[in-house]
């Protein structure tokens, strides 16, 4: 069973539909801690503001559950579900996050100019298809070409303290960590559920993954 954690932030239906498309396994959308703990694979999506995400997670008493399953099962963070794994985000004046990894969530405007080195305008949020460079091998990259394009929509990005957890990097005025992985956790800034064949391949790889990197 695959559990998509529901904390009423973001388009869970897209993730759910994409997962159902690549597996015959049971995919549930749930905010019930018991169901989450029973599942074999955990998908932690998210969209919107970090503050709202944290307040919804706290309200539903899901922070401890997320912490627990992130150390015990194959765990996939997507977009905001990647960002809140950090200790702190600068969003909305600053907000503490779950803190599974040391590091922060930064806003693009504090790090990039109006254009990139080639004169392309950098509009925030970054919206569209950008490339992910595989900075490390990982079972989740299986069958996905280096520098394949994925669909991104975001204004903030993660800056982990431990650079060794970065497995994918994207260029948007700066090179930032667009995928991180450690032990049984893989987290990605783009939306695999909206990234056509490569996105579906990533989800399939996740479902087939035993969590050993």
């Amino acid at each position: 069973m695959i559990a998509v954690i529901d904390y009423s932030m973001g388009n869970l239906h897209s993730v759910h539909k994409a997962l159902q498309h690549v597996t015959n396994d049971n995919v549930i959308i749930t905010s019930n801690p018991e169901e989450i703990i029973k599942a074999d694979h955990i998908v932690f999506p998210g969209q919107g503001a970090a503050r709202d995400c944290m307040s919804e997670l706290n309200k539903r008493e899901l922070v401890d559950v997320v912490k627990e399953v992130s150390t015990t099962k194959p765990f996939l963070g997507v977009c905001m579900g990647m960002q809140v794994l950090m200790e702190h985000s600068v969003e909305g004046g600053g907000i503490d996050c779950i803190g599974i990894y040391k590091g922060t969530v930064q806003h693009f405007t504090d790090h990039i100019g109006a254009t990139d080195a080639n004169g392309n305008r950098l509009k925030i949020p970054q919206m569209g298809w950008n490339q992910i460079k595989h900075t490390q091998d990982h079972p989740i990259w299986k069958g996905i070409k280096d520098n394949a394009r994925f669909y991104f929509v975001h204004s903030y990005f993660v800056e982990p303290e431990d650079k060794s957890i970065i497995v994918g990097e994207t260029d948007f005025g700066i090179h930032y960590a667009s995928a991180i992985a450690k032990d049984n956790v893989f987290a990605i800034q783009s939306h695999p559920e909206k990234s056509a064949d490569d996105g579906l391949q990533l989800l399939k790889n996740f479902i087939n993954w035993d969590g050993a990197s």
Binding site: N11, H13, S14, K17, A18, K194, S195, A196, G199, L200
Partner: peptide, 28 residues
């Protein structure tokens, strides 16, 4: 469409209130 097509989908036409937005987002 959302069950078969895994790229971003924008829906327009007849979006008048917040509930219409919710309906379309929930539909995929």
């Amino acid at each position: 469409i959302a069950s078969e097509v895994f790229i971003p989908l924008t829906v327009g036409g007849g979006i008048r209130k917040v509930e219409d937005i919710r309906t379309m987002l929930n539909a995929g």
